[in-house]
Design a protein around this nucleic acid. Sequence first.
DNA 1: TTTTAGGGCAGGTCTAGACCACCGTCTGCC
DNA 2: GGCAGACGGTGGTCTAGACCTGCCCTAAAA
Lengths: 256, 256
Amino acid sequence: MAGSAGAITGEIDRTSGTAIYVQLREILRTYIAESCRPGSALPSERDLAERFGLARMTVRQAIDALVGEEVIERVVGLGTFVRRPKLDLQVKLTSYSEEMQRRGMVPAAKVLSFEQIGASAFLARELQLDEGTPLVRFRRLLLADGEPMSVDENFIPAHRVPGLLDGEPPTSLYNVLSEQYGLVMEWGEDMIEATAASPSTARLLNVEVGSPLLKIQRHAFVARTMVDYSVSYYRADRYKLWVPLQRPGARRSRSH
Amino acid sequence: MAGSAGAITGEIDRTSGTAIYVQLREILRTYIAESCRPGSALPSERDLAERFGLARMTVRQAIDALVGEEVIERVVGLGTFVRRPKLDLQVKLTSYSEEMQRRGMVPAAKVLSFEQIGASAFLARELQLDEGTPLVRFRRLLLADGEPMSVDENFIPAHRVPGLLDGEPPTSLYNVLSEQYGLVMEWGEDMIEATAASPSTARLLNVEVGSPLLKIQRHAFVARTMVDYSVSYYRADRYKLWVPLQRPGARRSRSH
DNA sequence: TTTTAGGGCAGGTCTAGACCACCGTCTGCC
DNA sequence: GGCAGACGGTGGTCTAGACCTGCCCTAAAA
């Protein structure tokens, strides 16, 4: 339980004009990101109050915010704990590896192409760029338990990812984008439709021509700029999309 | 500004064991639902504190909860106001008429069957009921601009909707469920997949056998009980699903 | 050895103040 | 009449306590 390895660093600046609970919230967020693993306990509210010289109510306000973001969770009588990092909803809807692991399968990928191209008229329109703009094209065949599952193609404006093509094709595109280029996808749109397998796609996926496929086009944004357009074709016989629906404003079994 | 028409009714019971802020939150929720219109101002926090004999921090805790639910919103220097009720996300994902209207089409429906059946083994499992439980089955062909768009089949436990079958088939199932039976869908799950048109479905939808279709199975819940299981087949050539994606914990342009 | 009763600590709730920035209005000066 | 500043009200934040329930662990009792 000791786990005193990483003490919380940072101090409250009472002259900064930023609300104290906001400062503490960010201090805690950094601490969680850098020094905690899922399940780790945070110092108790009373300890934090003493450590930073604040009232407990103020500490609670900071913790409340992180609980609201589902970064941490409280357990009465035990403490406050770091949650398993949320699977990005960005990824959650269609994330390949998540879906595969949920089904107990082994995910894998075969890179079909990893190159720079000029934006076609269609791609220029989808990415809201000028025709001919350099794009990085990344096309993969995704497997589950060694069997083809989907064909996946991403297009990213080249100027957003300088040097990406000099290295090996990334295993996880979104990880590389966020960790190396600071491109953390903030929101997006998926367009989902059913389609029939074309001859080339059918061959890759090892299905018959005309078999039903799930086609998912995604536009992903950072701030207000689109940084990724992707098209994926999933084998209908092996893939289902699970979409949770919520009625807004009907939070139940949530303290909040 | 007066608006003193409806005073807030209800009192805090300090012996009930229910948290005071929870009691106040529900009192306010009722007040908002019964006596307020969007844009109405709530009494100030200080007024509420005095009216109910509470500390302002406690009042704020109650208001915080409603702000979190997006029922009301705060404006610094002005007050707290009732928000316009949100659109059901429940409907947002796949609502037929909404999608059609967004595309500028005229929605219509042809009732294929509206009857009571006993739950088959499959339906019993999907609805988490015993086999043979009476169900209302409601099957429709949905049209857009007169052209077939989807085949839609809903199954609802009959005991939830007494007398439903005595009347005409409803135009909007969800409206009838919520308005006549108080069944407001609170959350659900959609299972989306691609499939090939069976001969019967193909004939209804006026497509060739084997054409790709979007199959959407929905489980919709009120509280923790499933009240609707539905299966829809959408013509892939005429229907796309649009799914907005959000990264959790990345609230921008939201006071919160 | 098993069961039970505390003790200590966690978060949950509540109080009664305080000062701040922001907003609209009212008032008085020009 | 028009503008500027004062004023009162609002939500935003913060404090320094208080008592509650729930949880775990330990030590004593059975």
